[in-house]
Design a protein around this nucleic acid. Sequence first.
DNA 1: ACTTACCTCACCATTTATGGGGAGGGTGAA
DNA 2: TTCACCCTCCCCATAAATGGTGAGGTAAGT
Lengths: 237, 237
Amino acid sequence: MATELQDFLEVIQQVDTFERFQEATVGLRDLLNITHVVYHWVNSVGERFGAGTYSSEWVDRYLEKDYLRMDPVLFGCFQRFTPVNWKQLDWSSKAAKAFFRDALDHGVGNQGYTIPLRGPNGQFALLTLSHNATDDQWERFITRYERDLMIVAHEFNKKALSFDAPGDVQSGPTLSPRETAAITLIAKGFSRGQAAAEMRISEHTLRVYIESARHKLGAMNTTHAVARALSLGLIII
Amino acid sequence: MATELQDFLEVIQQVDTFERFQEATVGLRDLLNITHVVYHWVNSVGERFGAGTYSSEWVDRYLEKDYLRMDPVLFGCFQRFTPVNWKQLDWSSKAAKAFFRDALDHGVGNQGYTIPLRGPNGQFALLTLSHNATDDQWERFITRYERDLMIVAHEFNKKALSFDAPGDVQSGPTLSPRETAAITLIAKGFSRGQAAAEMRISEHTLRVYIESARHKLGAMNTTHAVARALSLGLIII
DNA sequence: ACTTACCTCACCATTTATGGGGAGGGTGAA
DNA sequence: TTCACCCTCCCCATAAATGGTGAGGTAAGT
C-alpha cells in the first residue's frame, strides 16, 4: 500500500463526528491530488448522509432536481458488486446526458470512480473519486490505487457503521424457531393454509406465530413483518 | 501487501471453472499456512455454492444437520458489515456450543475469521479462514493479513460474479418507478389504501402496480413480491 | 418453585386482498 | 409509424387475512 494512504487510514480511525468525515474526504482528495472525493451513505433506517468536497451548490441542485433517481453512477452501483469507472456506465439516455453536462458545469470532474459497499439492513455506501483527466490518465490512476481505495472505503464504512449502531449488534428483536419457520414460509409465497400444512400444524397455530413475530418486529401487518425480518437478516429465503 | 498474496491474486484471476475455485482455496491455505480456507457464495437466485478445504464429511454433515440455520458465523455475518473474528461471536446458546464441538471434531480449527461481502440481488459471499491456534496467535495473524484478505475476498467475488451473470448486469427483472414506489410503501407496512393515498392515486391504480410487479417478480402474492423485491435489492426500506 | 417464553389449538366478526375482466392517453424506441 | 411499456381509472365476486380473547401443556432458566 502506498505509504501516504497507509497514514491516511489513521486519519479515518480518528474520525469521531460527522464533521470529521468532511475533513477526511478533503484530506484524501489532497493526498491523491484529484478534484473531488465524496462519501455517501444510506443507513439502516434509510437516512442518507453525505460528506465530500462537492460544492454546496451542486449538492443542493442534485437533491432539488431529484438526480438521485436518475444518476447512472448511483443506479449502476446499486446493481453492482464491484467498483466502477464512470466511463463504463450507460450514459446513453437523454436524462443521463443532461445530468452529466450539469455535473460538469458544477465542477464535477469528467472522470470518476465509485466503490459501492453494502451492509446488512440495507446499509449502502459509496466512495466516489472524481477528476479532470484523459481516459488513459484516469485508467492509470485507478490501476495504481484501486486496491488501496478498497481498503480506504472499508475503513470509511467501519466508521459510518459505528455511528449507525453505536454499541451492540445483537440489539434487535429475535424470533423463535417456529416463528422464523413460519415467517420464512410466508416470505416464500406460501399462503397461511399452505404454510400450516408444510409445518404440520393448524392454521390457527400458524397465525399465532405470525402475529407473535409481527408484534416482536413492530410491524403493521404480515407483509411488513416479512420485510422487516428480511431487512434485519432474521430470515433467509 | 505481502508479495506472496500479491502473486495469489493472479491465481484467482485465472480461475475459469468451479473446480478451480477449489484449487484456489487450497492454494491460499498453503500460502498462509493455516488449516482451512472456505469460500461460500449465495448467488442472485439463492443457489449456494461453496469451495474450500473442509472435509466432505463435514460439508455433508453441515448440510444434513441444517447447520445453516444455526451457525453463529453465518448468522453473525448476515448482521454485520465488517469481517469477524469467530471469538467475538455469541456462542452462548446450547445449539451453538454443540455445533462448535461438532465442528472441532470434524477438523475445523478452533479459531476463525470470516469476511462477509454483499452484492446486488441478494448476492452474499463469505471468505472464511480457520486454524488451530491460541487467541493471541490468531489475533496477530489477523492483524497482519486483514487488509490483504479483504482484497483477496473481493477478487474471489469478482470471479464468482462473472460466473453468476456472464455478460449482462441487467439480468433480473426490473420495476417501473411507480411499481417500485408502490412495492416500497407496501413493504413499509402501508395498507393498499394508505399507500394509494400516499402516492395520490386511486387504490385501483395502486393495485395495478402491485399486480404488475407481482407478475414481473414471479411472485405468488403481495408478500412474496415484497420479499423478492427486497432480496433482489430492487427496493430498500 | 416460580417465572418466562415457547408450542399448540379454537371462535368470533370485520376488513382487506385477490383474480378476472376492460379502457384511454402518454412516451420512447425500432 | 407502430409497438411496447408505462400511468391512470373502474366493476365484480370470492378468498384470505386480521384483531381480539382465551386456554392448556412443555421446557428452560433464576
